[in-house]
């Protein structure tokens, strides 16, 4: 019974964090995009720097009419937001938040993370196929090709870190960096591949072909509105946080840092990576699909394989 209570407490904590995180990130993204484009972003709704805008958005989404497009595949359409939310919540289990604080420190943490996040594609495809809308299907097909292409470099780029740390447990990988120094310096090639591939996995500009507003309306979530649409956005912002957190754990020493407690460092580093992601999103234009696939298959894949072999060679000689 106690274990069940502990699990329930953990999951409530995570859900509260997911909502608070989305609340902050929606506001932050609009502010960052505003200042990058030399305007102010939300201001008029009120609060410090217009932060009540997020609350107003949530109220609007709650009150919005909920209807299903005619000809939609009922169950696929209804279940897609649910399926997109499950992996977003599950990955919080393995994040090494503090020195002794992980919700559930699985021995295969890294594999768990990458296998769970690949379910996101399933949700996107369910939404695209279920909607009976041409734009949705186009977006889903593009998302399929894109997530396939970037999952391989994403996984391969982490193997260099695993080689040095000798473990898939994220807590052990972070602990290895406290003696060894951040893996960012030795695995800079791995980090660059990881960062590009994780932006692509998140469907964010310059890789937002799956939902490019100016080409295919909103891609796979064209037919969603109100709270169902909000679930996709909630999962997306949650994934933005968790994949940045994984990058911090693998390459930037996780909770390791002087003076402040571990979890503060972890959150601080993660939000810095999130901010860099936003900076890239609002600076670069969208790329074409042939450029996207070429970058994935003909550049990132060989580079990440070369990184693995190079790391193994250096470790052998050492």
């Amino acid at each position: 019974m106690n274990i069940l209570l502990a699990a329930a407490l953990k999951v409530v904590g995570v859900l509260v964090f997911v909502m608070a995180n989305a609340f902050m990130l929606i506001w932050l993204e609009r502010k960052v995009s505003g200042y990058i484009q030399r305007r102010y972003g939300p201001l008029r709704v009120g609060g410090p720097a217009g932060i009540y805008q997020s609350a107003a958005d949530i109220l609007k989404l709650l009150a919005k009419e909920d209807f299903m497009p005619g000809g939609a595949d009922r169950w696929l359409w209804l279940l897609a937001p649910v399926v997109s939310m499950v992996p977003a919540v599950l990955v919080y289990l393995v994040l090494p938040i503090g020195r002794t604080f992980t919700l559930q420190d699985l021995g295969v943490g890294l594999v768990f993370f990458s296998s769970v996040t690949s379910f996101t594609l399933l949700a996107i495809f369910m939404a695209g196929w279920g909607s009976n809308n041409k734009y949705s299907l186009l977006g889903a097909m593009r998302a399929g090709a894109q997530l396939f292409s970037y999952e391989v470099p994403l996984i391969l780029s982490t193997i260099g870190v695993v080689l040095i740390a000798g473990s898939l447990r994220l807590q052990t990988i972070v602990a290895a960096q406290t003696q060894h120094g951040w893996f960012f310096f030795e695995q800079i090639v791995g980090f660059i591949v990881f960062f590009i591939a994780s932006i692509a996995e998140l469907n964010r500009t310059p890789f937002d072909l799956a939902e490019g507003e100016s080409e295919i309306i909103a891609g796979y979530h064209t037919e969603y509105s109100g709270m169902r649409w909000a679930m996709f956005m909630l999962a997306e912002y949650s994934n933005l946080f968790t994949s940045s957190a994984l990058g911090v754990a693998l390459f930037f020493g996780g909770w390791h840092g002087p003076w402040l407690p571990g979890w503060v460092w972890f959150l601080l580093k993660t939000y810095i990576v999130v901010f860099v992601g936003m900076w890239i999103r609002w600076t670069l234009p969208r790329i074409r699909i042939d450029q996207l696939l070429d970058l994935g298959w003909k550049f990132l894949l060989p580079v990440s394989v070369a990184n693995i072999l190079g790391t193994a060679l250096v470790l052998m000689v050492r």
Partner: peptide, 9 residues
């Protein structure tokens, strides 16, 4: 834990 997280998600 994994089961509870899946159901809650």
């Amino acid at each position: 834990d994994i089961l509870v997280f899946t159901l809650a998600g």
